[in-house]
């Protein structure tokens, strides 16, 4: 198993030498995935919250469908977006196929259901706690939606991170709609797939290591951000004001 040793060496040399091709691939990967997560968050948070708060016929079906969509196969999404964007497709005139925009669109379709489904759960639990109080104050589901999204912000960050995990890890959709074109639509996952098929396992594994480090970094940064914000808002040990110690009689 020299592959692993070679992989580390390759990864290290790519990073140390600041390989311009690598930097380009990493940059595009982050742009596509973070862009898709941003759009999916803007769609998914209100959609998930609305599904949690409003009662309408077919709501149970919608919840089941949404949960099922979390497991949508990337290749199928890629294929559908491919058909929509191809020259002969309904959106062909836009000329988006094999561009980073097409990759973002495909990933939004993969990520938005995850963000929405997890948001629905978070908001539903929060609403169960708040409902009577907010109704007493005169807030129906409509007014409550924004309040609940704000009050659930720390839990909702986890939903967004789950979406980012999906976006940064998937290869099927971006491969189909992006085409893995060098310097145009090549991202980390498609580059790894390509190197594997070319037989350069060390390079593939090296890229894989960098991808994992990237993913851990984004999650770590988000976690620290959440911790800091939460400590200042809701958590941390109870601060006892001067002149009052509950331990004393």
């Amino acid at each position: 198993m020299t592959d692993f040793g070679d992989a580390f060496t390759t990864a290290l040399s790519l990073v140390v030498t600041l390989d311009p091709d690598l930097a380009e691939i990493v940059g595009l990967s982050l742009r596509v995935s973070l862009g898709a997560v941003a759009v999916a968050t803007v769609i998914g948070l209100p959609a998930g919250a609305a599904l949690a708060l409003f009662r309408f016929p077919g709501r149970h079906g919608a919840v089941i469908l949404l949960n099922a969509l979390m497991g949508l196969p990337p290749v199928v999404v890629g294929l559908i977006v491919y058909l929509l964007l191809s020259r002969a497709g309904p959106l062909g005139v836009l000329g988006l196929l094999f561009t980073p925009t097409a990759m973002v669109i495909a990933q939004v379709l993969l990520v938005a259901p995850i963000v929405a489904a997890l948001t629905r759960q978070v908001i539903e639990d929060l609403w169960a706690e708040y409902e009577e109080q907010l109704k007493s104050l005169g807030a129906g589901p409509g007014r409550a939606l924004g309040m609940l999204l704000w009050d659930g912000r720390f839990s909702l960050l986890t939903a967004v991170l789950a979406g980012f995990g999906r976006a940064s890890a998937e290869v099927g959709a971006v491969m189909i709609v992006g085409g893995n074109i060098d310097h145009v639509t090549r991202v980390m996952t498609t580059a790894i797939a390509l190197e594997v098929s070319k037989g350069d396992l060390a390079l593939a594994l090296g890229l894989g290591l960098i991808l994992i480090v990237l993913s851990v970094s984004v999650n770590g940064a988000a976690f620290l951000l959440k911790e800091a914000a939460e400590r200042s808002q809701t958590g941390g040990p109870r601060q006892v004001p001067r002149g009052e110690d509950p331990a004393l009689p």
Binding site: E129, Y130, E132, S136, L137, G138, M147, F154, Q233
Partner: peptide, 18 residues
């Protein structure tokens, strides 16, 4: 009549705010 009333519950419902 709703805006002229208020209610306090057995378990206080605290928003996750200051």
């Amino acid at each position: 009549p709703a805006p002229f009333q208020a209610m306090v519950f057995q378990r206080p419902v605290m928003l996750r705010r200051s």
